[in-house]
Write a protein that binds this DNA or RNA. Structure first.
Lengths: 245, 245
DNA sequence: ACAATAGTGTCTGTGAGACAGTATCGA
DNA sequence: TCGATACTGTCTCACAGACACTATTGT
């Protein structure tokens, strides 16, 4: 703020059209786990710049909505998911490189959304023809490889988001956000192993998660072997545990 | 983005004056430790709204600077600190409540800056008369008490920033950012105790930090007792340790 | 000598990690 | 009976936590 002006005077001038403002957008990182790999939803660009390249879904922030609301609107517009579903959202980081979009100055607030694959597959039943969400999921590790082109600074966003999820997996319960309401412990363990990128000992893992889950009483059979018990996450914050390391 | 328009057409219209944009500001949380308490730099408002109330220093983001640059500019404008000093900066969170500023829609990106008290006191020597930084430091815990008024949503910001620092103190080296280049282990321990809000055992603490510090060879005397060795932080990232709990 | 703080050696209990063993399914 | 996976009991070793001890200053 200019030190020589009163705040009122400064604001009066600032508000006038002569002061240019950056645009504010929200970009969404929709993560899920598919084929035992962390995947992210991407769309193909239909316009310049980066024509044909992959990018994250995004929207401009309206004057009458918060960033969180914009992120959820973006999610609904892209996936057509119905209200009521509980989806994990989290603000990731705000990106402000001056030329991050070559067309104009856009400051982008990135949000993470974690969705169980089953839920995306459900949504696919109500998609317009030829727009299957599941086909737009890309393996995160492959996107991050050198040589792979991603539009704008979205590769940085994905890298940053992946790290955040990995870190949070160690000391919070976000892994549960990738699973449906009920799940088996082998499923939960596999999820942690994918996020942490290392294998865990079954017995130790079960000891650690035992206070975070409760039995449903049901069992599931998935092959020629002993069936596994179905569990559900016990109530409580997403930030209260410690797995791995 | 409106689904019925091509991206180009949408942008052409969006760029035109008819689309109103929110303003983007940066608010700065300058933390330091004074009298064995976590303190934060606040200014008194000289204008409506919240006339006379306390608020965080902030600036509007210019078209030709990133958020990080705006945060540093804010820091320089308020403190007059010289280039070259190494200050810890970190993006905290982006606040977007629609009426968080009653005058107009402002989205604010908050940044944390951690400064050793000694450095602020140094800066005070070059301040214009009657503008001592040190006198504008407020005890964080007292600001957060019920009944204490803080302008805008800055109380939320302070609460959130305090929690972030507390959490990071456990698994990173941010405590070092509150100390000068060289320091003693009792000083370092005290810093951790303030941030974590609990007392630590001397012997255990020293074992834990021994790989994060190196002796300078010098000693300091601070009273009628054994002098303590001066240490300096070893090179390395701010995110590699674990203290407390 | 004593108060005060700096700094060190060592015991113990907890818990993560490692491994071995049992249970339950289909074929 | 066998292969496959679910599930459990227990040993060990590292380390956080707790405490007791020694070291070095000023008065």
């Amino acid at each position: 703020m200019n030190q020589d002006l009163s705040e009122e005077e400064f604001l009066r001038r600032y508000r006038s059209e002569s002061y240019e403002k950056p645009s504010v957008a929200v970009d969404l990182l929709i993560f899920t786990i598919k084929n035992e790999k962390l995947c992210i939803y991407m769309t193909k660009r239909q316009a310049h710049p980066f024509w044909g390249g992959l990018c994250l879904p995004g929207v401009f922030v309206r004057m009458d909505e918060t960033l969180e609301e914009a992120a959820k609107r973006c999610f609904v517009e892209k996936t057509g998911f119905p209200d009521g579903s509980e989806i994990y959202f989290e603000q990731l980081y705000t990106w402000s490189g001056i030329h991050r979009d070559p067309r104009m100055r856009i400051i982008s607030v990135s949000y993470i959304a974690l969705v169980p694959l089953e839920q995306l597959q459900q949504l696919d039943k109500v998609q317009p023809e030829g727009m299957k969400l599941e086909e737009q999921l890309f393996v995160v590790e492959e996107l991050l490889e050198k040589g792979v082109e991603v539009a704008f600074d979205h590769k940085d966003m994905i890298e940053y988001g992946k790290e955040r999820i990995k870190n949070k997996a160690e000391y919070s319960k976000i892994a549960f956000a990738f699973l449906p309401e009920t799940f088996t412990l082998p499923q939960l363990q596999k999820t942690y192993e994918i996020l942490l990128d290392k294998s865990l000992y079954k017995a130790n893992f079960r000891k650690k998660v035992q206070d975070m889950v409760e039995e449903t009483g049901e069992m599931v059979l998935s092959g020629a072997h002993r069936p596994s018990k179905l569990y559900r996450a016990v109530q409580g914050e997403m930030t209260e545990c410690r797995i791995g390391k």
